[in-house]
């Protein structure tokens, strides 16, 4: 993959930035995220997580199965604060 390709669309993080984060010490999806913001956006990694795992596997010469998805946290989808308060349905 070319370094210029955007992997995380929400935060506009490129392949090159993710490779650099791995070279600097990221060893899992969360480590890449902390260093680059990949996966911190509106979709919370739904679009980019698989690609981030592929890049980790490629850079670290390990099977993809080594890398687990990041911890899932509430809310599962973006939630209106009014709905969180039970004032309204989404």
């Amino acid at each position: 993959m070319n370094d210029d390709v955007i992997v995380c669309r929400c935060e506009e993080v490129s392949v090159g930035e993710i490779r650099k984060a791995i070279q600097e010490g990221a060893r899992d999806v969360a480590g890449v995220k902390r260093r680059t913001r990949a996966g911190m956006g509106l979709c919370q990694g739904r679009t980019c997580e698989r690609t981030v795992i592929k890049l980790l596997a490629e850079e670290l010469h390990l099977p993809e199965a080594t890398f687990l998805p990041d911890t899932v946290r509430t809310p599962i989808t973006p939630t209106l604060i009014a709905a969180l308060l039970g004032e309204r349905n989404e």
Binding site: P75, T79, L80, I81
Partner: peptide, 16 residues
């Protein structure tokens, strides 16, 4: 939060 910023009702939380 909405007690001090009522407008927050109309915004989304994406993660906690």
């Amino acid at each position: 939060a909405v007690r001090f910023f009522p407008c927050l009702r109309e915004l989304h939380v994406i993660r906690t």
